[in-house]
């Protein structure tokens, strides 16, 4: 779980580069992630990079969808959210 927060997983091949790509796509919403994409292509190849981009794009969709309809956070996930640094009171919809 700490690796999700830090963006530096040690047990996932290309984890740091995958995190950097997700960070760039999520936080720079008006620019292409050129540097991060090139780094991932160099390490994992084009097919894996395209796959990572598709997953990140899909979660841009699903996160907006579920937040905007007020889908309740399942109680199962509350401890995980707190481990990530968010207080359960903040997750009340």
């Amino acid at each position: 779980m700490n690796s999700v927060v830090s963006g530096a997983p040690h047990d996932i091949r290309g984890g740091t580069q995958l995190a950097s790509l997700a960070d760039a796509m999520t936080t720079r919403t008006d620019a292409q992630p050129r540097t991060e994409r090139e780094a991932l292509v160099a390490l994992l190849g084009e097919a894996a990079t395209e796959r990572a981009i598709s997953i990140c794009a899909t979660y841009q969709m699903m996160n907006r969808l579920l937040d905007a309809v007020g889908a309740p956070v399942h109680p199962h996930f509350l401890p995980i959210a707190e481990e990530l640094g968010f207080h359960s009171d903040d997750l009340e919809r």
Binding site: S3, V4, G7, G15, N63
Partner: peptide
């Protein structure tokens, strides 16, 4: 790898579903 990209994206979007 798939779930790590999904989790990192959701974390940055502060989404927990």
């Amino acid at each position: 790898q798939i779930e790590y990209v999904a989790a990192r994206t959701s974390y940055l979007n502060e989404c927990f579903y």
